[in-house]
C-alpha cells in the first residue's frame, strides 16, 4: 500500500492505495465521484477522460499512485456550486449533444482541452480533437455542433475552473 495526496475538484484527499489501483477506480470507488465513466477499459473510448494538472488523460490508463501530488478535475468540478451549468455543459444541453449520455462526461472534459488549446477550432479540428472519444448513439454531428457552440462563449470559457497549472 502507498499513501497518495491529491486535490480533486479543489478538495484535498489522502488515502492508502494499492499501486495497481487505476485512477478511475480511485475516483469512483474511494472518493465516490461516479460522474467519470468506465467504458472500454482499454484507453480507446475516452469516457473516463479527466484532467490531471490541466492535461486531459484517460483515467483508466493511469495508476492512482502516478497522480500523487496532482490537481485533478472531473466532470463534477465543472458546474458552479449553485448548479449553474458550465458553458460547455450548457452547449451540450442546447445542441442535444447526447442520447444515452454515457460518453458525455468524457466528451465535455475533452472539449474543455480542445477549446483551451484552440479557442476557435474548425470542424475538422474539432473532429480531430474528439478522436479519442467514442459515442455510439449520436453519430457525432450534434457533439461537433456543441463544441462549436461552446467556442462562441469565449468570455465564459475564460473563467473556466482550472486544475493545476
Amino acid at each position: 500500500m502507498r499513501t497518495i495526496n491529491v486535490s480533486v475538484n479543489g478538495t484535498k484527499h489522502s488515502h492508502e492505495v494499492e499501486p495497481r489501483m487505476l485512477l478511475i477506480h480511485y475516483l469512483r470507488e474511494v472518493i465516490g465521484l461516479t460522474g467519470t465513466h468506465m467504458g472500454c477499459e482499454t484507453s480507446l473510448c475516452g469516457a473516463c477522460t479527466i484532467e490531471v494538472n490541466g492535461k486531459a488523460v484517460k483515467s483508466c490508463t493511469m495508476f492512482a499512485v502516478q497522480a500523487d501530488g496532482a490537481e485533478i478535475l472531473t466532470i463534477e468540478g465543472l458546474a458552479a456550486p449553485d448548479g449553474t451549468l458550465h458553458p460547455i455543459q450548457d452547449a451540450f444541453w442546447t445542441e442535444h449533444a447526447l442520447q444515452c449520455g454515457f460518453c458525455t462526461p468524457g466528451m465535455i472534459m475533452i472539449t474543455k482541452q480542445i477549446l483551451e488549446r484552440n479557442p476557435n477550432p474548425t470542424e475538422h479540428e474539432i473532429r480531430e480533437g474528439l478522436d479519442g472519444n467514442l459515442c455510439r448513439c449520436t453519430g457525432y454531428q450534434h457533439i461537433v455542433n456543441a463544441v462549436r457552440t461552446a467556442s462562441l462563449h469565449r468570455d465564459a470559457l475564460a473563467s473556466l475552473p482550472k486544475a493545476g497549472a
Binding site: 477522460t49 492535461k55 490508463t61 482541452q113 478522436d131 472519444n133
Partner: peptide
C-alpha cells in the same frame, strides 16, 4: 500519435 489524451501522457 494516438489522440489528445494519449499525447498528453
Amino acid at each position: 500519435i494516438g489522440d489528445i489524451q494519449v499525447r498528453n501522457r
